[in-house]
Design a protein around this nucleic acid. Structure first.
Lengths: 251, 251
DNA sequence: GCAATAGTGTCTTTAAGACACTATCAT
DNA sequence: ATGATAGTGTCTTAAAGACACTATTGC
């Protein structure tokens, strides 16, 4: 039996199984005014019409031998662009996990792969409703997660998992730098830490951590300062020397 | 338009999209003789015939409104039982993530949700080939991941991700206790840490960490000792007071 | 006794937390 | 000068790493 025979018979056999729909959902964060914000859309259709939900969509799956469709991350990136108009390069993506509880979508079996996306402050403002008429809005996330508004489907579970993942990875990866401008002050980065952890960060102690990153070569000092209404602050840049996180599958 | 009309039209629309097959793959670990071991099966069919692969199978998806099928974790647990004959209660499961790169399975578009399973030493021995004729075997994982044998599909990527996740969660969750007998010595636990991190653990320093867990109430001391060929060692029990990890989706 | 593992103690280094303090800008 | 944020220094405590040491068993 040749390989292609195998494949043909396998496809016939697999076709007997019902398949789930697979979607990607996006947990898009940005930091505004020292607070973590989450991009949500108001659903225009049943089910959960009028409720808030994560942006998302189907994963493109080809139906031929040659074309198996788009990768999960590509699907996530596509949805991100539709929803926020950010350029493809600018956004940072990381998979949260698969959520596939039966009944999570009342219409049919849907397994969703959730991705966290982090937007730098400048890009966040350009976010708006996507091509579908849905209304997009930034919702502040306070340190108290119980203040999260009710969300459609199991999206609140997904958001909680995403935040937990952010908190765990904050110290060991470069995610914080994805939420500050490319040239940032110590205070900018401190605000991001405070927003993600939900705990104010001591300026002195945070500075010590910052200096350590500086001497580790993770951050580079620039000669510039940012003018503020008070004492100008030194600007720094991220050198990108941390583990960058599994954004999808590396294959 | 009623809700059920919506659902009907939605299903019709969604049916236009090709759907991927969804499987679960299991990364089953145990610790034997101070070394991490991974359960692999030898594939009996193309593609990758004769190569080693992770055990796994399709996720059951219902095709009716009422029955949407089994949860991802249920599917994982079912495969685990088929493969290892462990009782349903005994195993610890945690999701690693979704792996769905196009082409990862040459036959058709398959998105796999990977789960890590941890087996206590006693249970590991009962593992054997599953109902399918595949041959199951325990492969030692050395500290040097480059010694991993080549695996079918993208399973090596999955294994690496699983190990990385284990290492990250080791200190902050109770996973180590899932790899020792219910009554264990300090040395047992130290061996698990060494096996997962791939680095020998200093007895004195590890003891300090152990004592901390003891006074935190995570571990309980028992009056018993384990007889060995040398000085008997005190036995302890896990009290289960750490965050237990997201095993699937909480819904 | 000897080999082997269980278990203890100590010194050093690193990093976190708390907090007081100085510096420099706009107004 | 004053308010506000930038930036510095110091003391204490928690924990990691390295490593020398003692204790108790089987043989």
């Amino acid at each position: 039996m040749s390989d292609s025979d195998f494949i043909a018979s396998y496809r016939a056999k697999a076709a007997q199984y019902a398949k789930p729909s697979v979607t990607v959902d996006l947990v898009i964060f940005t930091v505004m005014k020292g607070q973590l914000h989450l991009l949500l859309i108001e659903r225009g259709e049943a089910p959960f019409k009028g409720e808030l939900a994560l942006p998302g969509g189907f994963v493109g799956v080809g139906d031929t031998f040659e074309d198996q469709g788009e990768s999960l991350e590509t699907a996530a990136r596509r949805e991100l662009v539709e929803e926020t108009q950010v350029s493809l390069e600018e956004a940072w993506l990381e998979q949260v996990g698969a959520f596939g509880q039966p009944g999570r979508d009342p219409r049919m079996r849907v397994i969703s792969v959730a991705y966290t996306a982090l937007l730098k402050p400048g890009l966040a403002s350009s976010a708006r409703g996507g091509t579908d008429a849905a209304q997009a809005m930034w919702i502040p996330i306070t340190d108290d997660l119980s203040t999260l508004p009710p969300l459609a489907f199991d999206h609140q579970t997904i958001v909680r998992a995403a935040i937990e993942q952010l908190q765990h990875r904050l110290a060991t990866s470069g995610i914080a730098f994805q939420l500050v401008p490319t040239a940032f002050t110590i205070g900018d980065l401190r605000d991001v830490w405070a927003a993600i952890l939900g705990i104010p960060q001591d300026p002195g102690n945070f500075r010590r951590r910052f200096v350590r990153m500086l001497s580790d070569g993770i951050i580079r000092e620039t000669p510039e300062f940012r003018k503020t209404s008070t004492k100008p602050a030194r600007l720094y840049r991220f050198e990108g020397a941390t583990d960058s996180g599994r954004t999808g599958e590396l294959s």
